[in-house]
Structure formats: C-alpha cells, structure tokens
Design a binder for these strands. Structure first.
Lengths: 292, 292
DNA sequence: ATAAAATAAAGAAAATTATTTTCATGACTA
DNA sequence: TAGTCATGAAAATAATTTTCTTTATTTTAT
C-alpha cells in the first residue's frame, strides 16, 4: 500500500467522525478521488468542503489539489513497478535464508526511496534549501537512529562552511537551541515525529526565533505540525517492525537532495570549499606519512 | 517515455508557437508541472493561462487540473524505470533546478542499491553473519562518512546485546584493535578502501588475532585485500564527484542485510532484547514525563 | 500584385468554478 | 459553566475557463 493510503488507514482511528467518513471514502476507491472536485467529494461523503480542506492540512498537504496530485502519483506506483517485487514493503521474518532477506531488503529500500520521492514537495524543498543557504547558524536535532542522519548532514554542511552543530545529547540540543536567534535554522529529524527530546529542542529553537524545519516519516506528527516547514520520508506498514531501517535510508535520500540543492544553488561559493576540504584531508594524511 | 509526454513530443511540431513553448516547458521537467498552478506555468512560459487551458483541451483533457493529475500518475510510473538494466548514475550539475536534482538523486540511489544487491555474495554474507553472531566482541572502524555507517551498525548491534564499539577517533580505534583476540571481529568500513586510519586499525586487529571483515566500494582496494572477508557496495562512475552519497546508502543497505540476517538466525535470542530495548526507551521517557 | 475577407493565434478581461478561510453553532468535556 | 472541539454555512480568495477582442497571417478575388 502507498504511504498516503497507509497513513489514512493508520490514523483513521484518531480522526473525527466526518473525517473518518472521508478517509473511508478515499480508501474505498482512491483512483476515483483524483478525478473529483472537492465539492463532488464533499457531497458524496455528506460533509462540507471545508472539512476536506482541513483534512488535507492535517496530513500536511497544501490543500485538496495538492493531495490529489500526490495521491495520483502514488496509486500509479502501486499498480506498476513489478520488476523488483512491487513497491510494497516486505516483512522480514525469522529463519529466512539470507537470499530472501537480501531480496526483501532491496524491495524495501527501493520502495522507500521511491515513495519518499513522490511525497516530496519541491516548493518546500526550495524553501528549505533557501533557509539553509542563508542561515547564520544551523542546529540539527535527532536522537538514536535519527542522530545518525543528523550527523551525516552535519558532516556535509561543515564541508561547505555552514556553521552548524549536531548534538546527540538532549541537554546540549536544548542549550544550543536556546542560543539561536532570527536568521538561524533548526532542523529536527525523527522517525516517529514524536520524540520528546527532539520536539523540545525544536520548540525551544522556535521560541528563540529560529526558522524550524522537520524531517519525519509521513503522517501527522507533533514535530511536523509545529515546524515551519515539514518534510517527509515514507513510512512503513505497521507489521514491519524495524521501519527505521528503510526510513533512515529515505531520510538520507532527502538530506542528499537538500545538500545537493544547496551546492547547486551556490556553486561558486560551496564547490571550492568542498574541494578544499577533500584536498586538506588527503594532504594532511600524506604529511603524516602513515606513521603514528 | 509515458504516453502523455510521448504525445507531446510527437505532436509538438504541429502545435502553434506558444503551444510549442508550453509543450517544451512541460517536457523539460514534467515533475515540476504537476505542482504548479496554471498562472505560474503561464508566467514561466510567457504565455497566457487561456492558452494553457486550450492546450489541454487539444489533448483531450477536461482542463488543466485534469491534465496535472493524469500527468502525475504517468510520471510516477516512469520515474524509476531503469528495468532495462541500464542503471546508470546521473551526474548532478550546478544550477540544476531542484526537480532535476530530485530525479537524478532518486535514479542514483535506486541504481546504487540495485547494483550493490547484485554484487553481494551470499556465501560471504553468511560467513559474516556467522562471525558476528559468534563474536565475543565486535569492533567497527570507519572515518568521516564511513563513521556514520559504523555508528549506525553500532546502534543496531548494541540493541541485540552484541558487545561492540565504534570509535570515530583513530587513536581509540587502534587502541581497541590492539586489545582484540581470537573470536573477536573487526569490521572496517571505507568508501575508497584506502583510508589509512581504517587500514591501520584493521591491520592491528588482524595481528591481534581477530577475524577481519571489510565493506568497501567495489574494486580492488588495500582494505579489501587484507581483510578475511571482503564485502562490497557498488562503486560509481568516475565522473560522479560525490560518490560517497550513494555509497553510504548502499553500505547501509548491506548493514541492514547483515543485521537482519543476524536477527533472523538467532531470533529467539535477539528479538526479546530488541523489544526490550524499544520498551525501555519508551518507559524511561514516560517516567521522566517530559519535564526537566 | 494587391486589397479585402477569412482564418487562426493569442491575450485581456469577464465569468465561472473551485478552494480556502472565517465565523457561528451546537455538541461534548473538564 | 466555561471551554474546547468538530462542523457546516457563508464569505473571501484563488484558480480556471470562457468569451471577447486584437493582431497577424493566409486566402481569394480582382
């Protein structure tokens, strides 16, 4: 199932009555929805158009048309792409031979990258790249698995001379967040979007006047709601226990896009720094001569 | 090419000037179009919105929104699509619009995962899983980008109670390697396979009697040659400057396979520990209650 | 060959339609 | 009993489509 539909299914229980009715209608025949206007859909569900718009915002779409386009892209995925096991996530069970695991893992990771790409909102990416390029200082927040992603981004950013930090320690995150100010950027990464430490840090950064960006798995989450720009990677089905594997790869995929976007935008500034950083590492090593 | 885009390409010559300009804009980056309003697109092409609507009708769509939804569905089909085996890596250039970067990045990452999977040697993977499951102690070595991968593996391994370390500091790596002995495993990760610090650490581990495993980009490298088991991720074409992006994702892909292989093999031992580790994190958080 | 008529292309403005926001109401909750 | 929440109605806004007009191009009749 596609991330959007999956998210609907998953969050259905948390929705209000009318919203649930809408969710059910969408799940019943997603293919129809994409060719409908908001009014038509509202009538069919016996609800108001306003509710539909609100519903779309809950799921972080810009509005109903945006929802339609993204949904259309995803359902298209679903019934195509059978060349690598389809884009559905495979659960990995006990006692499977390694060859099965390899296949399943490949299917998962491929699906996760594809799904993430189709969820991406170019406009938001642009904004994010913009903020990051301009930022006086960038704070990266993430715990556990997400701290890996944060550190990865950190390594990239310092190579192009962006003033940034990535603390794995939650106290340091807060401390750093408190000292941000306008023109700074706080970037929070979380698989669930509910990691308290990360939420706290982002809130703190927001209060300090920094721009806030989140990268979470798709679906409504606290972190996404309270951040200025919310970016998403694809989420996995419930049954899949270790969803953070694919998620982490999907998040790195987004990070790579952001970073490349930055470099591409400010080629002249960044590339020399990047080259220099590579050169310095090599040079230093040669000088040292492998001893020590 | 998708039917819609193909049709545009084909009929382009028969269209009028302004319509051709529009068709070209759409063909240039179809992915962007679906997220645009008619007005925005009109401006970008220097034509009027009316022309766009007319254009859509020529191609038998109900209107522009209808066109967008259909196009979105179609490019979703096509965007992955290197099932022809031609999994070629795209170079990412300066000044590219983000939509192009997104597509290129997706192509790269998908290709890199596919290629890596096909390079994998199941036998070696089995051996590796075996060694890791039995190991008294596991050392993970990796510098810079590869240290991210090492830390990721570290986080996974400690969750299932494997006694392991992942130092980013090269002195600590050596120190730790020196204290290994038979029955221990040293796992070295490096994109180039030539990182001196990592090579030193692995050599040291080998001298101490530990089993040695390397994970590098495909090709002959010092690290691969001197390790007991050498695993490979896909290597990129020369032209691609920042190959470490895709490489890192490919390496994580391998790590995921190894880890899942371990869990799958010793399901009874590992799963309870894994569950416990998740539970503890949650529980601890609740106790704390979000204060502090 | 040239002027008038016809046709086609394209934009501007008007009309329409779709979507979003605001506001008011009633229902449920603490 | 105040307060929050869900919801729809209506107002506001935005997007799209249609109509109308202009301009350029081609055709045709002289």
């Amino acid at each position: 199932m596609t991330p959007i539909l999956h998210a609907l299914e998953h969050e259905k229980s948390k929705l209000s009555q009318m919203e649930r009715r809408l969710a059910e209608r969408i799940l019943a025949s997603p293919g129809e929805i994409v060719h409908m206007g908001i009014t038509e859909l509202a009538e069919q569900c016996g609800i108001s158009a306003a509710t539909i718009t609100r519903f779309c915002k809950v799921f972080h779409f810009k509005g109903f048309p945006d929802f339609k386009v993204k949904l259309a892209a995803e359902i298209a995925h679903g019934d195509a792409a059978p060349q690598d096991g389809g884009s559905s996530y495979q659960d990995i069970m006990a006692g499977n031979p390694l060859s099965v695991i390899v296949e399943a893992m490949q299917a998962n990771h491929l699906a996760s990258i594809r799904d993430t790409t189709s969820l991406l909102d170019i406009g938001r990416l642009e904004q994010t790249v913009d903020l990051l390029c301009r930022a006086r200082r960038v704070d990266l927040y993430g715990m556990a698995t997400s701290s890996i992603v944060a550190q990865d981004f950190y390594q990239k950013l310092i190579r192009i001379g962006v003033n940034c930090t990535a603390f794995a320690d939650s106290h340091m995150q807060i401390t750093s967040a408190s000292s941000l100010s306008e023109g700074d950027v706080a970037f929070a990464i979380s698989y669930s979007g509910e990691t308290p430490e990360t939420i706290d840090a982002l809130l703190c950064a927001k209060n300090s006047g920094a721009s806030t960006i989140s990268l979470t798995s798709y679906g409504s989450s606290s972190l996404a709601s309270l951040s200025g720009i919310s970016l998403f990677s694809s989420s996995l089905e419930k049954g899949m226990r270790r969803g953070d594997m694919a998620s982490r790869i999907a998040q790195l995929h987004v990070i790579d896009i952001l970073f490349t976007g930055m470099v591409s935008r400010r080629f002249g500034d960044y590339i020399p720094k990047l080259e220099q950083s590579y050169r310095n590492v090599r040079q230093f090593r040669h000088k040292r001569g492998g001893t020590e």
